[in-house]
Design a binder for these strands. Structure first.
Length: 1093
RNA sequence: GGGCGCGUAGCUCAGUUGGUUAGAGCGCUUGCUUGACAUGCAAGAGGUCGCAGAUUCGAGUUCUGCCGUGCCCACCA
C-alpha cells in the first residue's frame, strides 16, 4: 500500500470521505458480527443489547440518533474491552401507525380504501412499503456509524418473531391468562375502526347540557317521585343501565367543603373571590339538594328501580362514588357501553349490565326501541330530546345552554369519536383478588373473580395480587433489574401496581393475527356437542404428538349460551381446515404491537428454539431507551422474560434524556420542530453529531436544542421560531431567495431547494473533530522516520522529560475518568473529560512543546516521537466509541508511519481501532512512568507561570512577537522544575526567564503577577521597561489587590469564628489557614509592586 | 387533580458525599495571517446560583413553602 504523505492531508477533516470509506470496510471485515461460539466455549464474555426497534414507517429523528449513538458507544467500547458483542438491530411493525400511513398513501395516490384491496391485498401492500422504509432506517443507522450485527436484523412481524408470538400466546392461553372481556374503545364511526388514544385529539365544541327526570317506580310517601339527571349526550340514555347517587352525599359535601376552605386559606387575595363563591354555592346545595340526595341514597340501598323513559326498561338506582353531590343534580346516569367512567361504575356494580346501542357505522342498533333504530347519533339526539320533552321528562329551566364541551375526535377521519364497547382479548396482569371479604382467584379464561370460598359472591372492590405484573415488580424491587437513573423505577412500579389487564387485540389487518377460532352455541344440546367435538379435535392434535391446540368453553350456566375457543400453536393447515369445517371462525383481530415488542429481547435470538445465540447472549446486558415507554415496553419485556424464560431480559435499564427544541418542547414531526440527523451529518459529520450528543447527555436534564434553518443559497442560519417552524417555504432574510422546508407539499414549493434544519450546538463536535484531525496531521508529519526501536525506552527516567511523564500520567487519569464515566452511563462526563484533555492538554501543551523538540535531531526527538505516537494512540482508542470514523481514519494513517507504537508497544500493528484494546487506566505509563499526582501538580506550576506571562503581555498590549524577559520568585524546588522549561517559555510565550529562585530579583520596571493555589508562593515579574503602560498595570494590580483583600477579609472572618474552628474538620481549618497565608503573601507582593510604580 | 423533572453568565448547560476566590461551549470585547488547526491562537468582560424561610461553624448543593417552566398519567356527566 502506498504511503500517504501527511503533508498532503487536507487542513480540515473530511467527514464525508471517512464515512463513505470506513463503514463498508467494517462490515466487510465482520467486526460487528457476533459469534456465540467463543462465549459458549468460555473464551469470551458476552455483551448484548437489543435495539429499541424503530417504527418502520418513521424516518429516524434526532431522538433515535441519541438513543442509537449511546448504544453504539457502549457496544464499541465493550468490543474493545474484549467482549463478544451482539447489538441486535431491527424494526417494529407498529400496527396502527403503519397501517394508517399506508392507507393514507393508498388513498392519496390511488384513491383506494383498504376495503378495495381486501385484507390480504392490503397486508401485501404494507409489506412492500415496509421493505422500502426499513432500508431507509438501516441506511440512517449506518450513516450514524452504528455497529449493529446486520446479518441478524429482525422485524417484529417476520417469521422468527411470529413463531415467538404464537408460542407466547398459546402458553398464555393454555395457562388461562387470556380471557375475552369487554372494553371501551375509541370508535371511529366513519372509518369503522377503533383508534388508539394517541390518535385522538380533543376539541372544544359548543354543546348543550340537558336535564331530565326519570320516574321512580313505586316511591314511598315522602320520597321523590323522580330522579333528575343532567347530560350532554341525551341520545345515550337509550343505553342507560342505572342511575347513580353518592353513597354518602353529606360526607362528600363535607369533604369538598373542607378542601375548598383549605384552598381558600392558602389562596392569594385575588384568587379568593371565586373560591368564596364556590363555598357559597356549596352551602346553598346543602339546603337545596342534600335532603333529596340522602333520600335517594336510602332508596338506592333499598333497591329502588326507575323507569327509563322512551323504553320499556327498568333500571336500578345505585350508589357509587362517581356521582358527585356537588355537581349538577347530584345524580348521574350510567351508560357503561358508551362512557369510560360509566364503564368503571359498571365494573364496580356488576349486575347492572351494559347495553351497546351502536352499530359499527354509528347508527343505533336493535337494542333500542324500533323508532330510533338506524338513526345516526345526531338524529337520535333530536328525536330523543323531542320525545323526552313531549313525555314531560325534560326540565328546560335546568338546562345549561352553550356549554363548552371537550369532545374527542379521530385524528384520521376528523369525525367525533364514539366510545364503543367491544369484545376484546385480555391478558391478566394479576391472579388473585384480595378484599376485606376474602381472597378470590381468577377463573380460568374469565375476568370475573371467583371466591376461594365458594359461598361468597364476587367482591365489590378488591386489590389484585400476584400474577405477571407482580413478577415484573419483584424483579425491580429485588434489584434483578436496576433502573438508571433510579427515580424511573417509580414510574414502572406505579404502573404495574395497578395490575390493569392488558387488552391485546386491535381492530387492524396489519399485525400478528390472533390465533383463536371461535364457535357459538345456544342451549345445552349444542354445548354438549361442542365439547365432544372439541375433544375430538384435541385427539386429532394428540396424534401429532405435540400440543398443537387447546380449547376452552364459556357459557351461561342457566341458558347454556356460550362460546367455544380453539387456540392453535401453529398455522397447521390440516387442523385449521378441521376446525373450520366444524364451524369455528378465525378471530379477525391482530395483537397489539407491544405484544411482539415485549418478546423482543429473546424473539430476536430465535426463542422458543434453544439457539446458540440465545444461550450465549440472553439475558442482554442493558436496555437503553427513553422514559416514555417504560410502562408500555420495558415493563412488559421484564414480565414476559420472567414468564417465558424465567429470567429477566436485562439486568439494567438505562433511561436517557429526551431531545427538546429551543422552546423546551418534545421534537416531533407534527410540531415541525424535528431535526433530521442526516442534515446534521451532512453539515457537521457523523462524528460531530455523535460527540455532540454524548457531550449533551447528562443525567438529570433533557437536551434542549434551539433549532435553525440553513439557507441553501447563502448558508445563513435562521433561528426557528414558533411561527416559522411549520412553514412550507421561507424567504431568506439575508439573501432574499426562497427555500423549501421539510413540510413542503405543493409542487411549487417542492421545486425550491431544500433548507435543512440543524442546530449550532453541533459545532462543538465538529470543531473538536477538526482539532483532533489537525493534531493528528501534526503528529503524522513529525513521526516521519519513526521506527519501533525508537520507542524502546530502556531507561525511561533518565530520558523522559517532565512533559512526557506529565502526558503519560494524564493519559492514565483521563482513561480512568472516561472508563468510570461510561461504566455509569455518564456520557457527558466522558465526553467532557476527553474534550478538555485532548484540546487543552494534548494539543495546547504537549503538541506545542514537542515542536521545540522536533526542531533538532537526536534522542530527545525520538523520545518525543514515542510519547506523541503513544499519546495519540491512546486518545484515538478512548475517543473511538464516540467518533468512530475520525479515529479510524487517523488510526490507519498512524499505522502507516508508526505501525508499532505504544509503551510497551504491541508486537504488531492493530489493523483497526475497532478491534484495538481499550486502554487500562495504567496502561500506557505502566512500568515506565506511572500516574503521579506530583507530576501533574508540578506541571501545573509551569502552566501557571506561562499563563501569568501571557496575561501580562495582553494587559500591557505588548505585541506577540516582541520578546519578553521575566523572573520568578519561588522556592528552589519550583525553580529546578522551571529551569528545563526555558525552551517552552520561548516557544509558547516568546519569553525568557532571566532569574528563578527564592532570591530572584524583580526587574527594575516590572508587572507583577502572584500565583495562588500551590503549597508555596510563586511570583512572576515581567520586565516591561520597554513597553510600560503604567496606568494599565496599576489598574490590573488594583484589581488583584481588591480581590485579595476581599478574600483575606472573608477567610479571616471565618477563622476568627470560634464555632468554625471548633466544628469544622481540622483539614478544612488548616486549608483555610494555608490559603490565608498565601493570599497575604500575594497581597504583599501586589502592594509592593504598586508602591514601586 | 396525581406523579416526575427543571430554574446557575446574553444563550445552551456542568457543578460528585455541604468545605478553596462557582466552571465549560457558543455569543460578546481586545489582540494575533506564513508550518497541525481562523472549524484556529492568546487574553478579557459577564453570575446577590428563581424568591422566602429553616438546618449548620459553613448552603448553588439538605429541608419546607411560594413563583415560573416542562414532561408523563388520570380526568372534565
Amino acid at each position: 500500500m502506498p504511503k500517504t504523505d501527511p503533508k498532503s492531508l487536507p487542513s480540515a477533516y473530511d467527514h464525508e470521505a471517512a464515512q463513505a470509506k470506513w463503514y463498508p470496510i467494517w462490515e466487510e471485515r465482520g467486526y460487528f458480527h457476533a459469534d456465540p461460539q467463543p462465549v459458549l466455549q468460555g473464551k469470551k464474555k458476552p455483551y448484548s443489547i437489543v435495539i429499541p426497534p424503530p417504527n418502520v414507517t418513521g424516518a429516524l429523528h434526532l431522538g433515535h440518533a441519541l438513543n442509537n449513538t449511546l448504544q453504539d458507544i457502549l457496544c464499541r467500547r465493550k468490543r474493545m474491552q474484549g467482549y463478544e458483542v451482539l447489538w441486535m438491530p431491527g424494526t417494529d411493525h407498529a400496527g396502527i401507525a403503519t397501517q394508517a400511513v399506508v392507507e393514507r398513501r393508498l388513498l392519496a395516490e390511488e384513491g383506494k380504501s383498504r376495503h378495495d384491496l381486501g385484507r390480504e391485498g392490503l397486508v401485501e401492500r404494507i409489506w412492500k412499503w415496509k421493505d422500502q422504509y426499513e432500508e431507509r432506517i438501516t441506511g440512517q443507522l449506518k450513516q450514524l456509524g452504528c455497529s449493529c450485527d446486520w446479518e441478524r436484523q429482525r422485524f417484529t412481524l417476520d417469521e422468527v418473531c411470529a413463531r415467538a408470538v404464537r408460542e407466547t400466546f398459546f402458553k398464555l392461553f393454555s395457562d388461562g391468562k387470556v380471557y375475552r372481556g369487554k372494553r371501551l374503545v375509541n370508535w371511529d364511526t366513519f372509518l369503522q375502526t377503533a383508534v388508539s388514544d394517541d390518535e385522538v385529539f380533543h376539541e372544544e365544541v359548543k354543546g348543550h347540557f340537558w336535564s331530565f327526570h326519570y320516574p321512580v317506580i313505586d316511591p314511598r310517601p315522602g320520597e321523590p317521585a323522580t330522579v333528575t339527571i343532567a347530560t350532554t349526550r341525551p341520545e345515550t340514555m337509550l343505553g342507560d343501565t342505572a342511575v347513580a347517587v353518592h353513597p354518602d352525599p353529606a360526607g362528600q359535601l363535607d369533604k369538598v367543603e373542607a378542601e375548598l376552605t383549605e384552598k381558600l386559606a392558602a389562596a392569594p387575595a385575588k384568587e379568593r373571590a371565586p373560591i368564596e363563591k364556590q363555598l357559597e354555592t356549596l352551602a346553598e346545595r346543602r339546603k337545596t339538594h342534600l335532603p333529596k340526595l340522602e333520600k335517594l341514597r336510602d332508596m338506592a340501598e333499598r333497591g329502588v328501580m326507575l323507569k327509563l323513559p322512551l323504553t320499556d326498561r327498568e333500571i336500578p338506582l345505585i350508589t357509587d362514588e362517581w356521582a358527585k353531590p356537588e355537581l349538577g343534580s347530584g345524580c348521574v346516569k350510567i351508560t357503561p357501553a358508551h362512557d369510560a367512567n360509566d364503564y368503571e361504575v359498571w365494573q364496580r356494580n356488576d349486575p347492572i349490565g351494559a347495553i351497546n346501542i351502536l352499530n359499527p357505522d354509528g347508527t343505533l342498533n336493535d337494542s333500542v326501541p324500533e323508532k330510533y333504530r338506524g338513526l345516526s347519533m345526531k338524529d337520535a339526539r333530536k328525536a330523543v330530546v323531542a320525545d323526552l320533552a313531549e313525555g314531560g321528562f325534560h326540565d328546560p329551566e335546568a338546562d345549561v345552554a352553550d356549554r363548552l364541551i371537550d369532545l374527542a375526535h379521530s385524528d384520521r377521519s376528523k369525525t367525533p369519536i364514539e366510545p364503543y364497547l367491544a369484545d376484546q382479548w385480555f391478558v391478566k396482569m394479576g391472579d388473585r383478588f384480595v378484599s376485606s371479604e376474602g381472597t378470590y382467584q381468577w377463573a380460568k379464561h374469565a375476568h370475573e373473580p371467583v371466591p376461594v370460598d365458594a359461598d361468597k359472591g364476587p367482591p365489590a372492590r378488591a386489590l389484585r395480587e400476584g400474577g405477571l405484573a407482580q413478577s415484573a415488580m419483584d424483579s425491580v424491587e429485588r434489584g434483578e433489574v436496576g433502573v438508571v437513573p433510579p427515580r424511573y423505577a417509580k414510574t414502572y412500579l406505579d404502573w404495574l401496581g395497578e395490575k390493569r389487564d392488558w387488552p391485546v387485540g386491535r381492530q387492524l389487518w396489519w399485525g400478528h393475527r390472533i390465533p383463536v377460532w371461535t364457535k357459538r352455541f345456544d342451549g345445552k344440546a349444542e354445548r354438549d356437542a361442542a365439547i365432544e367435538e372439541a375433544g375430538e379435535l384435541c385427539r386429532m392434535d394428540w396424534e401429532r404428538d405435540e400440543q398443537v391446540s387447546y380449547n376452552c368453553r364459556e357459557w351461561d350456566p342457566d341458558t347454556f349460551i356460550g362460546v367455544s375457543y380453539m387456540c392453535l400453536r401453529e398455522d397447521e393447515p390440516e387442523l385449521i381446515s378441521a376446525i373450520e369445517a366444524a364451524g369455528y371462525v378465525r378471530d379477525e383481530e391482530v395483537l397489539d404491537t407491544w405484544f411482539s415488542s415485549a418478546l423482543w429481547p429473546f424473539s430476536t435470538m430465535g426463542w422458543p428454539e434453544e439457539t446458540d445465540l440465545l444461550k450465549a447472549f440472553y439475558p442482554t446486558s442493558v436496555l437503553c431507551t427513553s422514559r416514555d415507554i417504560i410502562t408500555l415496553w420495558v415493563a412488559r419485556m421484564v414480565l414476559m422474560g420472567k414468564y417465558l424464560l424465567g429470567e429477566v431480559p436485562f439486568p439494567q435499564v438505562y433511561i436517557h434524556p429526551k431531545i427538546l427544541d429551543g422552546f423546551g418542547e418534545t421534537m416531533s414531526k407534527s410540531k415541525g420542530n424535528g431535526v433530521d440527523p442526516l442534515d446534521v451529518i451532512e453539515q457537521f459529520g457523523a462524528d460531530a453529531l455523535r460527540f455532540g450528543i454524548a457531550y449533551l447527555t447528562t443525567e438529570t436534564q433533557d437536551v434542549r436544542l434551539p433549532v435553525e434553518f440553513v439557507c441553501p443559497h447563502c448558508s445563513a442560519n435562521l433561528k426557528q421560531t414558533k411561527k416559522n417552524r411549520v412553514l412550507p417555504r421561507i424567504d431568506c432574510p439575508e439573501c432574499g431567495e426562497a427555500f423549501r422546508t421539510q413540510w413542503a407539499e405543493k409542487p411549487e414549493d417542492l421545486a425550491l431547494p431544500r433548507g435543512p434544519v440543524t442546530s449550532e450546538r453541533f459545532e462543538l463536535g465538529r470543531n473538536f473533530c477538526n482539532k483532533l484531525w489537525n493534531a493528528s496531521r501534526f503528529a503524522l508529519t513529525n513521526l516521519e522516520g519513526f521506527s519501533a526501536s525508537n520507542s524502546q525506552l530502556a531507561t525511561p527516567d533518565s530520558q523522559l522529560k517532565l512533559e512526557d511523564r506529565w502526558l503519560l500520567s494524564r493519559l492514565g487519569t483521563v482513561t480512568e475518568q472516561v472508563s468510570s464515566a461510561l461504566d455509569d452511563y455518564r456520557f457527558a462526563d466522558a465526553a467532557r473529560a476527553l474534550y478538555d484533555f485532548a484540546w487543552n492538554e494534548f494539543c495546547s501543551f504537549y503538541v506545542e512543546m514537542t515542536k521545540a523538540r522536533f526542531a533538532e535531531e537526536g534522542p530527545d526527538k525520538q523520545v518525543a516521537q514515542a510519547v506523541l505516537a503513544h499519546g495519540l494512540d491512546v486518545l484515538l482508542r478512548l475517543l473511538h466509541p464516540m467518533a468512530p470514523f475520525l479515529t479510524e481514519e487517523v488510526w490507519s494513517l498512524l499505522n502507516e508511519v508508526a505501525p508499532v507504537r505504544g509503551l510497551p508497544e504491541p508486537a504488531e500493528a492493530v489493523e483497526s481501532v475497532c478491534v484495538a484494546q481499550w486502554p487500562r487506566a495504567q496502561s500506557g505509563a505502566e512500568g515506565i512512568s506511572p500516574r503521579s499526582v506530583e507530576i501533574e501538580d508540578q506541571f501545573a506550576k509551569f502552566q501557571a507561570v506561562l499563563g501569568a506571562v501571557r496575561e501580562v503581555r495582553q494587559a500591557q498590549k505588548i505585541p506577540p512577537k516582541e520578546p519578553l524577559q521575566f523572573t520568578v520568585k519561588c522556592d528552589a524546588t519550583t525553580a529546578n522544575l522551571l529551569e528545563p522549561m526555558q525552551p517552552y517559555f520561548t516557544q509558547m510565550a516568546r519569553a525568557t526567564a532571566t532569574d528563578l529562585g527564592p532570591e530572584a530579583a524583580s526587574p527594575e520596571i516590572a508587572a507583577t503577577k502572584p500565583i495562588a493555589g500551590f503549597e508555596s508562593a510563586i511570583e512572576v515579574h515581567v520586565d516591561i521597561a520597554q513597553f510600560i503602560d503604567v496606568e494599565a498595570e496599576k489598574k490590573r494590580l488594583a484589581k488583584e489587590q481588591a480581590q485579595l483583600t476581599k478574600y483575606i477579609a472573608g477567610v479571616r472572618g471565618k477563622l476568627s469564628n470560634e464555632k468554625f474552628v471548633a466544628n469544622a474538620p481540622a483539614e478544612v481549618v488548616e486549608g483555610e489557614k494555608g490559603r490565608l497565608a498565601e493570599a497575604e503573601q500575594n497581597l504583599a507582593a501586589v502592594e509592593a509592586a504598586l508602591a514601586k510604580l
